[in-house]
Structures are given as C-alpha cells and as structure tokens.
Amino acid sequence: MIRHFQYKKVCAGRDYLQEHYKDEFSLSKVAEHSCMSQYHFSRVFTSVFGESPNAFVARLRIEKAKQLLVTEGSSISEICTEVGYSSIGSFSSLFSEKVGMSPSQYRRQLSSLANEPHRFPMQSIPLCFAQNLFGFKANEPKK
C-alpha cells in the first residue's frame, strides 16, 4: 500500500514532469525532485498512476500534439519539436502507435469534420454531451 507521504512525493514528481514534458526526459532529475531514488520513484509512480514516468511523458506529448494539430496551423515538424521530440520519425511512429493514424491523417480527419478552422469537431467528444450540452445533431450535414 502506498503511504500518504509517498503519494505526495510522486505527485510532486508528476507535476514536475507536466511542467517539463517538453524537455529531454530524465528519470534522475524527476526522482531527485521527488527526493526518492530513481528505482523507488519509478516503482511507486507506476504503482500509483498505472504507467511509468516515461510513458506518462510520452502520453502528455502526444496529447499536446493532438491539440496543436487541430488548433494551430504549424507544420508537423514544428509540432514535433514543440512537444519535445527531435526526430520526426520517432514522433510520427509513436503518434501512429498511440492514436491509430499518422499526425497528418489525424489533422486531416478532424479538420474535415469541424465546421470552423482550428476548432475541435463535436465528433471528438462523447455524443451524449455533444447533443445535450452543445445541441449537436449527429446526422446533420457539415455547415
């Protein structure tokens, strides 16, 4: 069982990673920030959050990239750098692995569904909320 102080420590590390996700990943830095050994930090972090610190950073980067692909007009390579990757090849293959399509396909697909540029289409959130909160009609043709 994870104790309160350990939870607080890994939360501090998680906050640190969130702030520095664009930087080169360093387990030693984040462990030091949390006042834990690398091994212990990694083990407790994974046990509490269900993913390793490295996987957490990768997920943050991909989520940020997904957002930028829709809301910004920047090129894929600019977005790759923006979220902390130096190699577009690694970025694209990780993106494809996690999202199920390449960054450019993702951008194309969401842009084709949205009515306005740089906005998320209603199809990107659960339909019940899109309908009830925002009045979206599933079968309505794109305006």
Partner: peptide, 20 residues
Amino acid sequence: MDMTMDGGFRWLTVFAKAQP
C-alpha cells in the same frame, strides 16, 4: 480536456491524478 469546440463551446474535463 480543455478544448474549444465548433460553435465556440468549451469542453472541459478534469480527473484525479490516480484515476485518469
């Protein structure tokens, strides 16, 4: 998620760190 949707609607969600 904190996204601006079509029509300017804001889709905003939060979660507890240990229960994403």
